[in-house]
Design a protein around this nucleic acid. Structure first.
Length: 578
RNA sequence: AGGGCGGUGGCCAAGCGGUAAGGCACAGGUCUUUGGCACCUGCAUGCGUAGGUUCGAAUCCUACCCGCCCUGCCA
């Protein structure tokens, strides 16, 4: 009675939630599987998932997809979700990573409440489980060396051979296993193995290792253990202990599912359902954990939070919002097919989010000076500027205007092509929020020919950027008043790799060679409006007409530093490329 | 070669025997004090290939082709 009620409840919740859900797509094969389990009352109407990172690196956008799937689905079904550190290999794991992972998952917007678990906290239970399998004759201590074991395992097409130690007695196995735990044997000398089937076509079933002897300091349990369980003997049992219903993971674990089920069935304990989905691949980047580690450790980038990295820490620093990342994950969907998502998809999500939220400001990245000859010297007037045309509640601000201003060097051409709607000799354009100006003269450096000053006149009757006589102008430029301008450094980013698929670009070549030498461009001499002087780290803006930017953590009041999150779409640039 | 899983437009992805959703990208256009945003229009007689079943097939059957994963005491 109680069970069917909770089942009904979750069904109802699911129905009402799906419409308003901001999580993964309305229909996918995982949701269908869960729906089936719900109607069959397989887990008493419960939905309980988990995200199981190994604390051996930083989370990246691929993990974000996995988190959005596991946690997002649990949210939608009104279920629960755990954050569990899969820390059964002390060699690669560190506390720094668990802190970073927690920070990033929180930042993404998920709250696992008190359900923060560590597989290593189950070591004692796991040990008992292992002993139980020995007693059932389903596990044995093996003395084969790694090389020997490899030989005995056979190949993809030939069956393996039974280990000569496979038939030890239960008593002997128990004693030996206890001895392993007690430190009686050297590292690597013995393993505990499941007794399954050395001729199975699934290599994972050929008597897989459950425990290895390994004297390594565990970041969480110190030197309490000198034997550590393998992933296969840890993961499913951890899911079981936590009461997880749906264990969602990467397709690479599909081959492990028979083993996952075998352990749980042999142990006769609660059995969750593992469902696999395809991992994310993104163009112009790499998402492999070891590859990212190489980029960081070999200093190809500046740390795990380098804005060029697809790590969540890097993306955060770059200016990505958690909302945009979640939106991206929801848009790309979930399936089992190999995929390669175009970077443009991610860029769409961040532009879409920031367009509605980011205050507009004016910043000149590559300045050239404009002198308005008929504007009174030393006069400074404050002009009203709307903060966000997409959001009236964002209000307005005042910006200073004066006789000398900076405009973007690209916004002037001496000999413009057709359809160049900007400043040129004799042309009149609008300065955003200010006046119409007309170019009268250009002053160049005698030596280099570089334009050093552009002389213009303004029309005092066009204040605010309007003309009563209905006169139209060719274009609208952003600008910053010279005297009030604040200097800033702006970091422009391009893709980290030059190849769409760096890992598959050329057979037998090293992906590292496809690093983009121009992935970071630093502009030292940018001029931004004075209001930006006190902006806080991570605050995000739209620099009018150029892109979305955010204040970098390197920024100080003495030296502002901005990262370009993503440029605005630029149909003019596209036109020029042809 | 053995096993597992995939193959729907340039990139994702719905679809579950009743005659190919949607998004990104792209191409036109409208609007515009951002060459942004928004809005409109266009974009698979086709669902890996070939057969078959059916009144009807992306969906069912058969064979074949292609791709990815698996021979760590990593996860």
């Amino acid at each position: 009675m109680k069970q069917s009620n909770s089942n009904l409840d979750s069904q109802k919740n699911r129905d009402t939630n799906q419409e308003n859900s901001n999580n993964t797509s309305q229909s996918n094969f995982i949701r269908q599987a869960i729906d089936e389990d719900l109607t069959n009352n397989r887990f008493d109407g419960r939905v309980h998932t988990r995200f199981p990172p190994e604390p051996s690196g930083y989370l990246h956008i691929g993990h974000a997809k996995a988190i959005c799937i596991s946690f997002g689905i649990a949210e939608d079904y009104n279920g629960l979700y755990n954050l569990r550190f899969d820390d059964s290999n002390p060699i690669t794991e560190e506390s720094e990573y668990v802190e970073a992972i927690k920070r990033d998952v929180h930042w993404l917007g998920f709250d696992w409440k008190e359900r923060e678990y560590y597989a290593s906290d189950y070591f004692e239970t796991l040990y008992e489980y292992a002993a139980k399998l020995i007693e059932k004759g389903k596990a044995f201590v093996c003395d084969l060396t790694p090389d020997e074991m490899k030989t005995y395992r056979g190949t993809l097409v030939t069956p393996g051979k039974d280990s000569p130690y496979r038939n030890r007695t239960t008593e002997e196995n128990l004693t030996l296993f206890q001895g392993m735990r007690d430190g009686e044997f050297p590292d690597g000398s013995r393993t505990l193995r499941a007794k399954i089937d050395m001729s199975s076509p699934n290599l994972n079933m050929r008597d897989p290792v459950m425990y290895r002897v390994l004297r390594s300091h565990h970041y969480r349990h110190g030197d309490n253990w000198c034997i550590y369980p393998t992933y296969d003997f840890t993961h499913g049992q951890s899911d079981s202990i936590e009461g997880v219903t749906h264990s969602l993971c990467d397709v690479q674990f599909e081959d492990h599912r028979p083993l996952y089920d075998w352990f749980l069935e042999s142990l006769e304990i609660y059995q969750p359902r593992q469902i696999e989905f395809a991992r994310l691949n993104l163009t112009y980047t790499v998402l492999g954990k070891r590859k990212l580690k190489i980029l960081v450790e070999d200093s190809h980038v500046n740390g795990w939070d380098d804005p060029r990295l697809p790590t969540l820490a890097g993306m955060r620093r770059r200016g990505y919002t958690p909302e945009a990342i979640r939106d991206f994950c929801n848009r790309i969907g979930v399936s089992k097919a190999d995929n390669l998502i175009e970077l443009g998809q991610l860029e769409y999500s961040i532009r879409n989010d920031l367009n509605l939220r980011a205050p507009r400001v004016m910043a000149v990245l590559n300045p050239v000076k404009v002198i308005i000859d008929n504007y009174p010297e030393k006069q400074v007037e404050m002009l009203d500027a709307e903060n966000n045309p997409e959001d009236e509640s964002a209000g307005t601000r005042e910006i200073p205007f004066s006789r000398e201003i900076y405009i973007e060097r690209d916004d002037f051409m001496e000999d413009p092509p057709r359809k160049f709607y900007r400043l040129a000799p004799g042309r009149e354009v609008r300065l955003k929020h200010a006046y119409y100006i007309t170019c009268q003269d250009v002053i160049k450096d005698d030596q280099t020919g570089e334009i050093v000053e552009i002389h213009c006149t303004y029309d005092p009757d066009t204040k605010g950027g309007w003309s009563d006589d209905g006169r139209r102008v060719q274009g609208t430029l952003h600008w910053v008043s010279v005297d009030q301008a604040v200097d800033a450094e702006v970091r422009l980013y391009d893709t980290l790799f030059t190849e769409r698929e760096p890992e598959n670009a050329a057979e037998g070549t090293d992906w590292i060679q496809f690093l983009n030498p121009n992935s970071l461009e630093i502009l030292e001499n940018c001029k931004v409006e004075p209001g930006l002087l006190n902006s806080e780290s991570e605050s995000r803006y739209q620099f009018l007409r150029t892109g979305y930017f955010c204040v970098d953590s390197d920024s100080t009041p003495d030296k502002l530093v901005f990262n370009r999150t993503v440029p605005l779409r630029d149909s003019w640039a596209k036109m020029q490329k042809g």
